[in-house]
Amino acid sequence: MSEEMYKQMAQCIIDGDSDIAIELAKKSIELKMHPLETITKGFVIGVNYIGDQFGLGEAFLPELVMAGEAMKAAVAVLEPELLKLGEAREMLGRVVLATVEGDIHEIGKTLVGTMLSASGFEVVDLGVDQPADKIIGKALEINANLIGMSALLTTTMVRQREVIEELDKEGLRPRIKVMVGGAPITRDWVTKIKADGYSEDAIGAVKVAKDLVGKGDQ
């Protein structure tokens, strides 16, 4: 019975269908299936499959995003059950994401968030136009080990440096690692502002984040 359910769970992630994902997650609770196993034996299989297909060039970005969103929807249903059991899904790391102050461009950052959370990170996305103190404050509040900052403008990318300088001043690095991204960001810039990592796209960001939290093999 549960084998069949797991298959359906994987399939709804592959299909990127959040509605069915929520429905199946609720049903698993009714059937008293263990929420952690529901995630690892069911939904995660779908995420991994789409990831593999993407790597082979068979699946595309919208499919990855839809799988990520369906996964997120299912986990949101199951998380309270996990808490009740006093358990938690083992996460790769905690990430605070934001577009820096003065900048309202967010699609890249949002994609990074979707990819990271689908890959097993706990992600808090602060949104756009976020000043340094807000970003750092949130990182401290949730005990994040990673901050990701996005900027699209050459006039706002300097804010990335401000956040890093502030972190250094407070002695919060290397406890909190910093990754940056955005269209104008180059390797030279990353070196100059002493960020820990960067990626040019959302897929690459997952690998960078895993490396930065010491989970590069996962």
């Binding site: 990127g16 595309f60 919208p62 839809m66 969103e69 967010e106």
Partner: peptide, 16 residues
Amino acid sequence: PGGHYLGQKHTRKHMR
């Protein structure tokens, strides 16, 4: 306004 179309079923249907 805001957001993105990557998660839309319409996108999946027509992306190819």
